[in-house]
C-alpha cells in the first residue's frame, strides 16, 4: 500500500513539475504569428500542389496575409470565387483570372506517328529526352511514358494505351501547371477554359519544315498557313513552320479546322462546321490527310473530310 502511494505521489509531483517547465518554455519560445494565416490556409484547397508558385498552401497563405497587393497571387486550384472570398476576408482587392485548363498539344497517335525503333530503357520521358529523339522519330511529340501523369496530383491526366498519348480530363484539371513543368517536350499549355469545356488548339509542337514533319507524323502541323488565311480574327500566328491559336482572340468559329490538311487543329466538345453543301461530319476529330500531303508546303490539298 505504501509503495503504491509513493508511486502515485512521485509521478504526480513529476507531472506537475514538467508541466510548469513546459509552460515556461512555451512562453519563452512563443512565435508571434498572424492568426489570419491559419484561417486563410483553411480556406485554400490544401492540395499543396505548388500551382501558385509557392512551396505549399501555408507559404501561399503567408504571402496572401503579408503582402499588400495580392493581385499577382492566384490559386488555380481554388479558382476565382475562393480567391474572392479570401480577398474579402483580408480586406484586399481580389486577384482575377479566368479559368484555365491544361492542354496537351500533340496529336501523333500510334497510328499517325508509327514507332520506328524500340525503346528499352527506363520508362520515363525525361530519360528518353536525355539521349535521343524518341521512338517515333519526331523530336517534338509526346513520348508517352507519363511523367506528366505522375506529376498531376488531381488525377486529371491519363495515358490512353490505344493512341499512346496523354489525355486531359478538363473537369478534374485545376490548371496548377505541374504538367507544364513535368513535360520535357513542353507539350502542355494552360489555355483559356471556354464554357462546356470547349476547346480549340493546334495539336502539334513541331518546328520542323512540313516535309520533315510529314515524314514521321501524319497528324502534325506542316505550317502551310491555310488556317491563318481563313481566320477572320487574327488569332492564328505561324512561327517556325508551326501554327498557334491565341485563345484570347479566337471566337471558336472553327473555320480553320476544315482548312487544316493534316487535322492538326483539334476541337473539343464541338461539332465541325458543315462542309459547304454536304452533310455535317459527325466526328469531332478530323481524319488524316492523304500521305502525299505536304511534300511541298504550297501543295493544294483537299481537306480530307468525306
Amino acid at each position: 500500500m505504501n509503495s503504491l502511494v509513493l508511486t502515485v505521489l512521485t509521478l504526480s509531483v513529476l507531472g506537475v513539475l514538467l508541466a510548469v517547465v513546459l509552460y515556461f518554455v512555451a512562453q519563452k519560445f512563443k512565435v508571434e504569428e498572424d492568426p489570419r494565416i491559419d484561417d486563410v490556409e483553411k480556406m485554400l484547397p490544401g492540395a499543396n500542389c505548388g500551382g501558385c508558385g509557392f512551396a505549399g498552401c501555408r507559404a501561399m497563405s503567408e504571402a496572401l496575409v503579408s503582402r499588400d497587393n495580392i493581385g499577382s497571387l492566384f490559386c488555380p486550384v481554388a479558382g476565382g470565387e475562393v480567391m474572392k472570398s479570401i480577398a474579402d476576408f483580408l480586406g484586399k482587392a481580389a486577384p482575377e483570372k479566368s479559368p484555365m485548363v491544361a492542354t496537351m498539344r500533340c496529336g501523333g497517335t500510334c497510328e499517325k506517328r508509327p514507332k520506328v525503333n524500340h525503346y528499352d530503357g527506363a520508362l520515363n520521358c525525361a530519360v528518353v529526352n536525355t539521349f535521343y529523339v524518341g521512338e517515333s522519330g519526331c523530336a517534338f511529340g509526346c513520348i508517352g511514358y507519363g511523367d506528366c501523369v505522375h506529376a498531376c496530383k488531381f488525377g486529371a491526366l491519363s495515358l490512353n494505351p490505344e493512341t499512346g498519348l496523354v489525355e486531359v480530363d478538363a473537369d478534374k484539371c485545376t490548371a496548377c501547371g505541374a504538367c507544364v513543368k513535368a513535360c520535357p517536350k513542353g507539350l502542355f499549355e494552360l489555355r483559356k477554359k471556354w464554357p462546356k469545356n470547349r476547346a480549340i488548339y493546334v495539336a502539334c509542337r513541331s518546328k520542323n519544315r512540313g516535309a520533315v514533319v510529314s515524314k514521321v507524323c501524319k497528324a502534325g502541323c506542316i505550317g502551310c498557313g491555310k488556317c491563318q488565311k481563313v481566320c477572320a480574327f487574327g488569332a492564328i500566328t505561324i512561327d517556325s513552320h508551326l501554327a498557334y491559336i491565341d485563345p484570347e482572340k479566337c471566337k471558336l468559329c472553327r473555320k480553320c479546322v476544315n482548312e487544316c490538311p493534316t487535322g492538326a487543329i483539334h476541337i473539343v466538345n464541338m461539332e465541325r462546321l458543315p462542309k459547304e453543301p454536304k452533310a455535317p461530319a459527325t466526328k469531332a476529330e478530323p481524319k488524316a490527310a492523304t500521305p502525299n500531303v505536304a511534300t511541298k508546303v504550297e501543295n493544294k490539298v483537299e481537306p480530307a473530310n468525306k
Binding site: G121, A122, N124, A126, V127, T130, F131
Partner: peptide, 12 residues
C-alpha cells in the same frame, strides 16, 4: 534497375 538512366537526369 536502370540506375544510370535516372542518375544522368539528376546530374544534368
Amino acid at each position: 534497375l536502370p540506375l544510370l538512366d535516372y542518375i544522368r537526369i539528376g546530374k544534368q
